[in-house]
Design a protein around this nucleic acid. Structure first.
Length: 379
RNA sequence: GGAUGGGUAUGCCUAGCGGCGAGGGCAGCGGACUGUAAAUCCGUCACACAGAAACACCGCAGGUUCGAGUCCUGCCCCAUCCA
């Protein structure tokens, strides 16, 4: 059984440790996203060891489609498969209900997808999602939910949230059953519930109260950063998190920019994840303490400086902006790789700084300094 | 000297075969991306402009035609082959 231990608080911000069978997670933490059991951009497990990565996130839907969760199970689970012996969180497929909206139908029993790879029919309900995640043997499994678009109307959101609640109850029963089976690889697999409700405070709060009664291992706020404004997102966090269990970790799914993370920590979030550092890295957008830069821009053509002065990442320790820009323009794999390494290092380092500042009771000061230096609040 | 095939916009390649203010691609330049259908996508890429108003070049010069990038003639380049 996992233990969530709060070490320090500052306002609603929390500094904690989450003890799991796969090791401790120091929070607040940014999980590095490797959807298909790999962080895109040719990032290896060895790389991650030098990037302060604590947790990797992989995806139920994608790994079910390819290579197949049974194959991963045969090979000893995702940790062995990927050669990563630290915690892994698997997303449930709930986000694909949103992102693959054109390829699926939602029913009470679950969701019928057409595979984005070959069009094959795939059914995924709460039980299937739990079975797949159990086969993958991740440290933390996410409940199967519907991530509804932020602009969905009230009636739709209410119906969707009610269904997500029923699904959550089914997830819990199924996860308990799977964890008690002898042939389950990780019999201590944790289950996090997901709060939904778009930007309707009352639906969010009501749902938070409902799922809190289920005594799950952690609670996520989902359905944010899907079209609403930053203000709306922060408002939802302020209104909703107080109704989630204080003695369990809180996870803000799919978020976000460095500024989003600082605002999230302030409102009580422990876990974050986002494709930004990896995707933006592949696209040549680099995070620095003085704002985001686009290495494709002509002004970096003869820039001999590293991406960021003083940065300890593998890209900044050796290479110039001009060289990496050349690699990107020449479509050399190394270019993307170095950029992704830098961005992950930037994010993971920022989380380390956040934890340090919380330890010292100086989070507010740190946050202000960081945001001032980065300039653009949307970063 | 002869034969054949070509020359398409401020860079490169290419579509066009009588209605073209000329379509694509690459390169360039800029932008987007939030639990990853993304090494992707979008914009821009002579000047100007959506107007009975403009007209800067489709190797160059003529010609045929209501109308020519497209057909004809000559010339200039390029490529390949033959002397």
């Amino acid at each position: 059984m996992a233990e969530y231990q709060i070490l320090k608080t500052e306002g609603r911000a929390k500094r904690a440790v989450f003890h799991t069978v796969h090791g401790d997670i120091q929070t607040p933490v940014f999980m590095n996203v490797g959807t298909a059991a790999a962080i895109k951009g040719a990032v290896s497990t060895e790389d991650l060891e030098g990037l302060k990565t604590q947790v990797q996130l992989s995806n139920t839907y994608h790994l079910h489609v390819r290579p197949g969760d049974r194959i991963v199970k045969q090979l000893g689970g995702l940790q062995k498969f990927m050669s990563w012996n630290k915690p892994i969180l698997t997303d449930s497929g709930g986000f694909q209900v949103f992102s693959l909206a054109g390829l699926r139908k939602i029913k009470e029993e679950g969701v019928y997808f057409h595979s984005h790879i070959d069009g094959k029919k795939i059914f995924m309900g709460p039980e299937e999602s739990m079975q797949i995640q159990s086969n993958l043997a991740s440290t933390i499994a996410m409940a199967f939910d519907e991530c509804a678009p932020s602009k969905a109307d009230r009636a739709y959101v209410q119906a969707s949230v009610d269904r997500t609640t029923r699904w959550l109850e089914r997830c819990r029963v199924e996860m308990n059953r799977l964890n008690s089976r002898d042939d389950t690889i990780n019999r201590e697999q944790l289950l996090f519930g997901i709060n939904q409700g778009a930007i309707y405070d009352d639906i969010r709060i009501e749902h938070a109260k409902r799922i809190s009664e289920l005594d799950l291992d952690g609670y996520a706020v989902g359905g944010l950063a899907v079209g609403e404004s930053h203000e709306e997102m922060y408002h939802v966090l302020e209104e909703t998190i107080p109704y989630l269990p204080k003695d369990k970790p809180t996870y803000l799914m799919g978020v976000g920019t460095p500024a989003n993370i600082l605002e999230g920590v302030e409102r009580g979030v422990d876990f974050f994840d986002c494709v930004y550092p990896s995707r933006n890295g592949r696209h040549g957008h680099l995070y620095t303490n003085h704002g985001k830069i686009n290495l494709f821009n002509a002004k970096y053509e003869v820039d001999p400086r590293p991406i960021e002065e003083g940065c300890g990442c593998p890209a900044c320790r050796r290479y110039s902006r001009a060289y990496i820009r050349h690699l990107l323009k020449a479509k050399e794999m190394l270019g993307m790789r170095l950029c992704v390494l830098h961005n992950l290092y930037f994010y993971n380092t920022m989380m380390e700084e956040i934890r340090d500042s919380l330890d010292k009771g100086e989070f507010q000061a740190y946050k202000k300094r960081k945001l001032d230096r980065m300039g653009n609040p949307d970063l």
